[in-house]
């Protein structure tokens, strides 16, 4: 199932979500207007313009964005009108030429003029679809008068939704942290359930793919965290977790391999316990367990092969994650 974390993972900047909200608002008003107004066959154009007129939401400031949207709406509505006219009059040659020019322009815009590409793309789509609609409308039920009213209403819905959601991006705030913990939990669960391995090559291809996907996801989420202190800790966790995962054991004896594996297994198991903890009390218990593990680790003599480096990385990961969790509990209780 594609859940909320999958969605956030794919829209970390919140661009699609802003568009989704604008689309929903615009469609909501469009449906109401479709039910209220008596425009015959032309009323569908309220829905079409309302849904597809939002693609030119670019520009630094709101007036600039509104201007872009208005220009885009003029172009889109003009294209629809022209295409219906072509359809009514069975102008196949003109339609073919227009479709080729617009679609080629779309490819060109996508390569070099991204901001204009949305408008040109939908001009192409509208041109193709509405020529077909024009052909179907044998009784010419869509005429300039009712089409203008419908297009105007659709445009009004678009402008309203832009004013209601004027931002280009959304920040996920606390949800992005939830997403980080979610993916880290999956990573820890996978690592603590992986069977004993001599080298990384022993892991199955599926596990490697999954690990890499989770690593990329954690890295991407970290990039979108605003709080610099938190971001720094996330980077520290990611760094430590990746190093622990791939720590080398080639050509060393079985005691050393067992030691590295047990260290790896323990830290991921405890991390999984912490990340799965529901209540504050459970989190505190898991934090205590992790801290106790870190203290024990510090007291155990260094492995003759790894000079305590893996222990140091494990300690850094534990420190970062426990501090984050304790700070969150503290902040929650002070609110």
């Amino acid at each position: 199932m594609l859940g909320i974390t999958d969605y956030i993972r794919n829209d970390l900047e919140g661009v699609y979500t802003a568009e989704l909200l604008r689309g929903a608002i615009s469609m909501f008003f469009a449906v109401i207007l479709t039910q209220i107004l008596e425009l015959g066959e032309a009323r569908a154009y309220i829905l079409i313009v309302a849904l597809n007129g939002l693609r030119s939401m670019t520009g630094e400031t709101l007036p600039r964005r509104l201007l872009n949207i208005i220009i885009s709406l003029f172009l889109l509505v003009g294209t629809i009108g022209l295409s219906i006219w072509y359809g009514h009059n069975h102008m196949y040659l003109a339609q073919t030429v227009t479709a080729i020019v617009l679609s080629s322009a779309t490819v060109y815009a996508l390569a070099g003029h991204k901001s204009a590409s949305g408008t040109i793309m939908f001009m192409s789509v509208f041109n193709i679809v509405n020529f077909g609609m024009g052909l179907l409308d044998v009784n010419h039920e869509v005429n300039p008068a009712n089409f203008s009213v419908a297009a105007g209403c659709g445009s009004l819905c678009v402008i309203t939704s832009v004013l209601a959601v004027p931002v280009l991006k959304f920040h996920w705030c606390l949800l992005i942290n939830h997403c980080f913990y979610h993916d880290l939990k999956l990573y820890a669960r996978m690592m603590c359930r992986s069977s004993y391995y001599d080298s990384f090559s022993d892991l199955s291809e599926k596990s490697k793919n999954r690990l890499l996907m989770l690593q990329s996801s954690l890295y991407n989420i970290t990039k979108h965290v605003d709080d610099p202190e938190r971001r720094e800790r996330y980077v520290k966790i990611l760094n430590g977790v990746v190093l622990i995962t791939y720590w080398p054991t080639t050509d060393t004896d079985s005691v050393h391999v067992a030691h590295i594996n047990s260290l790896r297994n323990s830290i991921f198991k405890l991390m999984y316990g912490l990340l799965s903890a529901g209540s504050d009390a459970d989190v505190k218990t898991a934090v205590d367990e992790l801290n106790f593990f870190r203290l024990n680790l510090a007291m155990v003599p260094d492995d003759p092969f790894c000079n305590g480096e893996m222990k140091r990385h494990a300690g850094e990961v534990i420190e970062a994650i426990t501090e984050l969790k304790m700070r969150e509990i503290k902040n929650a209780s002070s609110e």
């Binding site: 594609l2 999958d6 969605y7 794919n10 829209d11 699609y16 979500t17 568009e19 989704l20 689309g23 929903a24 469609m27 909501f28 449906v31 829905l47 849904l51």
Partner: peptide
């Protein structure tokens, strides 16, 4: 129609 229009916008993220 409204549900599928919303889902279309939602699916663009993937």
């Amino acid at each position: 129609l409204v549900i599928f229009a919303g889902l279309t916008l939602w699916s663009r993220a993937f």
